[in-house]
Nucleic acid binder design. Structure first.
Lengths: 228, 228
DNA sequence: TCAAAAGTGTTGACCCTACACCCATGG
DNA sequence: CCATGGGTGTAGGGTCAACACTTTTGA
């Protein structure tokens, strides 16, 4: 396209991804080893520049796919980071996106990026303002997990109530009463109980459930408001 | 700064402002008549391009100031709009900001922009994706007004409880019980009752109150959570 | 004197929290 | 047989919604 708005500076636009995962009891963050200047070799969120023919959402999906091979992942904008000097090389504004990833044996990370999971309780130093991005994303995650059933995006399709509770405890860094929690969750009537148990974390085993998206959509139509 | 990230397209970055006001019973939006191509002469949100030496927050403040002469106004990012073809001239990504403005006799709008207030219930057609921006901002406003005491930004410093209730009714398009509303608001203990009445909307007159920011900050420290 | 908005209390239903014991099983 | 985590019920307090009449005063 021709330039019809003269005398205005065009700017580099990037997307940086805050990739959350959940593993046993820990909320985790996937970070990569930066392979180019500046700050080469340091820990960094995975990111990339926005191309001419893609929206920011598309750019975020592309970047996520290159690292993880995953598509159709829950992903959402957090906010824009636009301080003039935030990138030491050239002015770049960056839009932070967070994504919720199921960590499991099928997840194959591209070796290219030297990616590694870190516990949110024990993050390494990150370049630029990436630490602020992570904070902002975590704040948004807390908000969202409270008011929308996105926690399930971090768990296997078949999940147990104790697992879900441990996830919320990790997100909020706060213990929850197991009786009250399971009553509240089951009362919403969004989980389908299966005739299987998961014995990976106890001898007795915990019943498996499946989040029923259709039932949730029905509830929404009736004015139901999710809240944990 | 030199270009250190080669082969990447730089992009025009704009800010568009969703300016909310409140007048009697109506939530209002300030829109301008666009004075340049494309779409010259049509109704548009006020906006502008981001300059080299400013953050997006700064750009939004600058644009607001040029139109209204106001500073220190509540203003917050909504989200980025980045569809490739959203601007018909040249690819532009735009970050929507919303602001809350007190409409009163001191407000002097720059004549340059042909600005006009419209009721949110009766908006004109807007250019590009500006209507979507307004929807997104309204959604965020509903969210914020419920969980933070930002409603006061739309009202005079001295306000009455019925006025505040009408504001919330306008934001949520829903009637509220006046007894329950005033009990809830006063119970929060954030309003200082004055010995004056406002008779502009009734013969009996309603007591004026002042929102006490310091008291609110104290409450926050004690773990108080605002919710309407 | 009347119309129009302000102000004010109570009750019942529901919801949320706090809390303790038994169950199933693998080792 | 025992250690570990899973599963379950109840009672009390607090919160929220629903509801109607009186007050004030300008016109």
């Amino acid at each position: 396209m021709a330039r019809h708005y003269p005398h205005t500076k065009r700017i580099l636009v990037a997307v940086d991804c805050i990739l959350f995962g959940f593993d046993q009891n820990d909320l985790k963050l996937l970070v990569t080893k930066r392979s180019f200047s500046p700050e080469k070799g340091k820990w960094s969120l995975i990111g990339g520049f926005v191309e001419e023919d893609e929206s920011l959402d598309d750019a975020a999906k592309r970047i996520l796919f290159k690292l993880t091979g995953l598509r159709n992942i829950f992903m959402e904008e957090v906010k824009v980071f636009s301080e003039v000097a935030r990138d030491s090389m050239e002015r770049t504004i960056s839009v932070a996106y967070y994504a919720l990833i199921k960590i499991n044996e099928n997840l194959k990370l591209s070796a290219e990026y030297g990616a590694q999971w870190f516990s949110m309780n024990d993050l390494p130093d990150l370049i630029f303002d990436h630490r602020n991005m992570v904070e902002a994303a975590h704040t948004k995650l807390k908000w969202m997990a409270k008011h929308q059933p996105i926690g399930f995006e971090l768990l296997p399709k078949k999940l147990t109530i104790p697992q879900l509770r441990r996830l919320y405890e990790a997100i909020y860094k706060k213990e929850l009463d197991k009786r009250n929690f399971s009553r509240k969750i089951l009362a919403m009537n969004m989980l389908e109980k299966l005739n299987e148990k998961d014995k990976s974390s106890s001898k007795k085993g915990a019943y498996l459930y499946r989040f029923d998206k259709n039932r949730y959509r029905e509830l929404l139509k009736k004015g139901f408001i999710f809240e944990v």
